[in-house]
Simulated assay, not measured.
Amino acid sequence: MYAIVDIETTGGGGAARITEIAVFRHDGVQIVDFFHSLINPEIYIPPFITRLTGIDNEMVKDAPTFYEVQDAVRAMTRDAWFVAHNAKFDYGFIKKEFGAIDEYFQRDLLCTVQLSRKIFPGLKSYSLGNLCESLEIMIENRHRAHGDAEATVRLFEMLLSNDRQNLIPINLYQ
């Protein structure tokens, strides 16, 4: 199983928090489950983040906190590879949120940036937007967790089908 994840945050600094999360659970062939939610970060969302993501303080004021969605996130990622574009970023934020509730969160990581560099060498850029443009993958709702995670699912499926070097582990938990 693979848990293909994307988050949006209040920024990249140490005090930043998650504002949105999307997780697609994938069995290597197809999506088998999905979770998506805005998250109340319990801190202020700066205007430059709102301009980038479209997520503002008003949108998240009645959204659940991470604590309230933790069970869904845990269940969606359990016994699965944690897959994300720039995986350490998304994983680091989720790990930090679980740490704030005194829970150790550990998953095995697969980064679609690193995999793309090896499976599709020589592209001008490996940012999600440019990579998807090069591979003709549509991204709807760019810089939103659902749209970026969905594009990452399509990218991951292309990586799986083009992985001649067997870089992507399979059957880890089966």
Score class of each variant (00 low, 15 high):
residue 133 E to H: 05
residue 133 E to W: 00
residue 134 S to Y: 13
residue 134 S to P: 06
residue 134 S to Q: 15
residue 134 S to N: 15
residue 134 S to L: 06
residue 134 S to W: 05
residue 136 E to H: 14
residue 136 E to Y: 07
residue 136 E to R: 15
residue 136 E to V: 13
residue 137 I to T: 07
residue 137 I to N: 06
residue 139 I to T: 10
residue 139 I to S: 02
residue 140 E to N: 15
residue 140 E to D: 15
residue 140 E to C: 08
residue 141 N to K: 11
residue 141 N to W: 05
residue 142 R to W: 01
residue 142 R to P: 02
residue 142 R to G: 00
residue 142 R to C: 00
residue 143 H to D: 03
residue 143 H to R: 10
residue 143 H to Y: 07
residue 144 R to G: 05
residue 144 R to K: 10
residue 144 R to L: 07
residue 145 A to Y: 12
residue 145 A to K: 08
residue 145 A to P: 09
residue 146 H to Q: 09
residue 146 H to G: 03
residue 146 H to M: 12
residue 146 H to N: 08
residue 146 H to L: 09
residue 147 G to M: 08
residue 147 G to Q: 02
residue 147 G to V: 00
residue 147 G to K: 02
residue 148 D to V: 03
residue 148 D to G: 03
residue 149 A to S: 05
residue 149 A to P: 01
residue 150 E to P: 00
residue 150 E to M: 13
residue 150 E to T: 10
residue 151 A to Y: 07
residue 151 A to H: 07
residue 151 A to K: 10
residue 151 A to F: 07
residue 151 A to G: 04
residue 152 T to E: 00
residue 152 T to C: 15
residue 152 T to Y: 01
residue 152 T to N: 05
residue 153 V to R: 12
residue 153 V to F: 08
residue 153 V to Q: 14
residue 154 R to L: 07
residue 154 R to M: 01
residue 154 R to D: 08
residue 154 R to W: 00
residue 155 L to D: 04
residue 155 L to Y: 10
residue 155 L to I: 13
residue 155 L to A: 04
residue 156 F to K: 12
residue 156 F to H: 10
residue 156 F to P: 06
residue 157 E to M: 14
residue 157 E to R: 03
residue 157 E to L: 09
residue 158 M to V: 03
residue 158 M to A: 11
residue 158 M to H: 04
residue 158 M to E: 11
residue 158 M to N: 11
residue 159 L to T: 15
residue 159 L to S: 04
residue 159 L to M: 14
residue 159 L to V: 06
residue 159 L to K: 02
residue 159 L to H: 00
residue 160 L to R: 01
residue 160 L to E: 15
residue 161 S to R: 13
residue 161 S to V: 12
residue 161 S to A: 07
residue 161 S to Y: 09
residue 161 S to T: 12
residue 162 N to M: 10
residue 162 N to Y: 07
residue 162 N to S: 15
residue 163 D to G: 10
residue 163 D to I: 04
residue 164 R to S: 12
residue 164 R to M: 13
residue 164 R to P: 09
residue 164 R to Y: 13
residue 164 R to F: 14
residue 164 R to A: 12
residue 165 Q to S: 09
residue 165 Q to G: 03
residue 165 Q to F: 11
residue 165 Q to A: 12
residue 166 N to G: 04
residue 166 N to I: 00
residue 166 N to V: 00
residue 167 L to S: 01
residue 167 L to R: 02
residue 168 I to N: 12
residue 168 I to G: 10
residue 168 I to A: 14
residue 168 I to T: 11
residue 168 I to R: 06
residue 169 P to Q: 09
residue 169 P to I: 04
residue 170 I to K: 11
residue 170 I to A: 05
residue 170 I to N: 05
residue 170 I to H: 08
residue 170 I to S: 06
residue 171 N to P: 00
residue 171 N to G: 01
residue 171 N to S: 11
residue 171 N to E: 13
